[in-house]
């Protein structure tokens, strides 16, 4: 029972193959990993090692070819598209390398958007506003509410993306190379922000990166090589 609660994510014998024409690429091979609530974990490895593929599987935007993923007690292979979408909405927050904000919405609207998709909050404007302002304040953009993404710097955009990922209070936040498009100082600020939220709210963060200076700051580092886990270490 304790194991079930602490294991927020369980990846069991997961393989993922892609077909490129006549060639089948084994992007992930027999991956086994368990991730607990509140972890601040990075998935490292060279390009093509399978980092993004693993994040996509954990994020339920892709399905494994073999094996099973259990996210927050739900085996995803048994879930319909609608249920997977609901799982993503309620349990997982995404931070993308290229920010992926909705260009026609301003900062406030972008952050508010996931809440509008939730049945319980869709019609509760007051609570939505409180939440959006809380997280925008947390990422330091409370004074940029009406700015469109095109009017923000890369670092600011990523902060908006973090606020959007956090606003629905997910148990898991997945970030695929969140600092790749940022300069080192801004990248460090973003990592500091993620660490702060992890510490304060016990949100589980899983992010991929090549950057060794960032890897060192994770509590746990899982290194992938050619689709295998080559190491899985807790950092001091």
């Amino acid at each position: 029972m304790t194991n079930l609660i602490s294991n927020l994510i369980s990846v069991e014998n997961v393989c993922k193959d892609y077909k490129l024409g006549a060639v089948t690429v084994n992007a992930l091979k027999e991956i086994n990993i368990k991730i607990s609530i509140g972890e601040f974990m990075t998935i490292a490895g060279p390009s093509g090692s399978g980092k993004t593929t693993l994040l996509n599987l954990i994020g339920c935007v892709d399905v494994p070819t073999e094996g099973e993923l259990v996210i927050d007690g739900k085996g995803i292979s048994r879930l319909s598209d609608k249920e997977l979408t609901e799982l993503r909405l309620n349990t997982i927050g995404f931070i993308f390398q290229t920010f992926n904000l909705i260009p026609v919405l301003n900062v406030y609207d972008n952050v508010e958007f996931p809440l509008l998709l939730k049945n319980d909050l869709s019609k509760n404007k007051k609570e939505r506003k409180e939440r959006v302002m809380y997280f925008l304040d947390k990422v330091g953009l409370a004074d940029h509410l009406n700015h469109r993404p095109s009017e923000l710097s890369g670092g600011q955009r990523q902060r908006v993306a973090i606020a959007r990922a956090l606003v629905s209070k997910p148990k898991i936040v997945l970030a695929d190379e969140p600092t790749a498009n940022l300069d080192s100082e801004t990248g460090q600020n973003i990592i500091d922000l993620m660490k702060k939220i992890n510490r304060e709210d016990h949100t589980t963060f899983i992010f991929s990166t090549h950057d060794t200076s960032i890897i060192k700051q994770a509590q746990r580092v899982v290194v992938l090589k050619d689709g295998h886990i080559s190491s899985d270490e807790m950092m001091k």
């Binding site: 909705i102 959007r164 629905s168």
Partner: peptide
């Protein structure tokens, strides 16, 4: 297309 993918990823149902 990327926007659609993002919206689907953050929890928008197909019908929406």
């Amino acid at each position: 297309t990327i926007e659609i993918g993002t919206l689907r990823a953050i929890g928008m149902q197909k019908i929406m």
